[in-house]
Amino acid sequence: MTKKRFILNASRSSKQGTLINVGKDSEEYLELTNTMTMSAGDMAEIGLAEGQTALVRTEFGEAPFKCQAGKVPEGMIFIPYGPPTCLLMGGDTDGTGMPTSKGWEVDVTPL
């Protein structure tokens, strides 16, 4: 059986924008940028419990994220931009100067 792959989108939120000004070393910011949101159905399918950590792997890098269920479409993962998402980002900009930060195909492995 082939392993299910997800589409990861790094995104922004008002909480993240506010916490940038509080400080990127603050506990809340670290908590927020190390948490990924996916649908409850997807979590059950790959055996992830609420609050469990999973390793997210792109072709460029990997990073662990705490998982939470949320209102997102099946097959998709959303993570607020931050230092952990930098680890997943490749350096190629397709000649545009802008690295791709949305629509990555990723593997998710429960830890």
């Binding site: 931009y81 680890l87 980002m89 350096g91």
Partner: peptide, 12 residues
């Protein structure tokens, strides 16, 4: 700017 927290890892 804070590229150390926003750019791809190879750039950092």
């Amino acid at each position: 700017a804070d590229p150390g927290a926003t750019m791809p890892q190879p750039a950092i």
